[in-house]
Amino acid sequence: MTIASSTQLICFAVLSAALLLGSLGVVLLPNIVYSAFLLGGVFLSMAGLYLMLNASFVAAAQVLVYVGAVNVLILFAIMLVNKKETLAAIPGLPLRRVLSGLVCGGLGVLLLRVAFITPWPLPGPTPVGEEATIRIGEHLFSDYLLPFELASVLLLMAMIGAIVLARRDVFASDVITGEPVDQGLLEKTRTPLLSEIPALESTP
């Protein structure tokens, strides 16, 4: 076994272990902040696996999009609303846990079965290496043009929805609850603090 192949094996083992343990932690940890940080670790190890498959552009894009944007925004949202409050007990929680565990386990068994009975062509296609960026660009603008554009329309819709939800003050009634919005609260005129202080001239 050469140095390169043994290094590769060790890297694969470490990355897979990090990926599996990390994703278990994301699901099982009670602290939501830990889950969010571990999710970043999971995305990073996935990028490492892409790197080992010689897909360096995909790996960098994974880091940029999932770690740099998605995970940061998730953390951002958690930290902005992270109130320490005890949530009301959900009825039948153990049963729900068992059910969702069964569904996930079934899905896992199904995926494992697919992974084992599919005749994978080994060794896989030769990696294109540094040319991958050019190939991806060509595909995006020829045979994958429609999905690419549809994805951008989807993102635009999400963005407009977010703006509508965030700028509730422009509507007379709340979008979700239908209650009238107290716009006076938002546009309360500023009263200068100092003008209410009793006149200083009275002091000798």
Binding site: L44, A61, L64, V67, V72, E130
Partner: peptide, 17 residues
């Protein structure tokens, strides 16, 4: 590396975490 400058952009996005 062929990624060059893109690698820098994607790495610098880890920092805010």
């Amino acid at each position: 590396v062929g990624l060059g400058i893109f690698l820098w952009i994607s790495l610098s996005s880890i920092q805010p975490i």
